[in-house]
């Protein structure tokens, strides 16, 4: 067991973890933050995307011990005070989700994308989300939602 200490969604957390524990399982099974999903075992699908020190990462490619001393944000912390985050609003407005399983990762990846590039082109959105797979929507409404959130000018 290895002792780690990190900040998750603004809260200080300490835990003893098996060194082989992936960050995503630490979040899901130790902290009960089940909004972050697991869709593959090859770091392909992006369902597990979270923010590590403000940047999007696939939490299935990191060990929990690698997040020691760092700051993690998950989908659970995106909506504030009962208000959906502008990206979540845009996803809903544009019907950018169906089964919802890829959605938390997709929203986190999109948030990181918009932070780096507040006014992306359609092509930039598609390239920026290339590591996130969705089987339901054909991506069209996801792209639309991200562009819509960017155009709405709301701070993401």
């Amino acid at each position: 067991m290895t002792r780690i200490s990190l900040t998750v969604n603004g809260q200080r957390r300490e835990a003893d973890v098996e060194p082989r524990t992936l960050l995503v399982y630490f979040l899901r099974e130790h902290l009960g933050l089940t909004g972050t999903n697991v869709g593959c075992d090859t770091s392909t699908c992006g369902a597990c995307t979270v923010h590590l020190d403000g940047e999007s990462v696939k939490s299935c490619t990191l060990l929990a011990v690698q997040a020691d001393g760092r700051e993690v944000t998950t989908i659970e912390a995106l909506a504030r005070d009962g208000e959906l985050h502008p990206l979540q609003e845009a996803f809903r407005r544009n019907h950018a989700l169906q089964c919802g399983y890829c959605t938390p990762g997709m929203v986190m990846a999109a948030a990181s994308l918009l932070r780096e590039r507040p006014n992306p082109t359609e092509e930039e959105v598609r390239e920026g989300l290339e590591g996130n797979l969705c089987r339901c929507t054909g991506y069209q409404n996801i792209v639309k939602a991200v562009l819509d959130a960017a155009a709405s000018g709301a701070r993401v």
Partner: peptide
């Protein structure tokens, strides 16, 4: 009409079996 399903799925509160 916008979906009734969305708020919980967008916020990570939807419960899938592995959750």
């Amino acid at each position: 009409v916008l979906r009734k399903e969305d708020p919980e799925l967008l916020t990570g509160r939807g419960r899938y079996t592995d959750d």
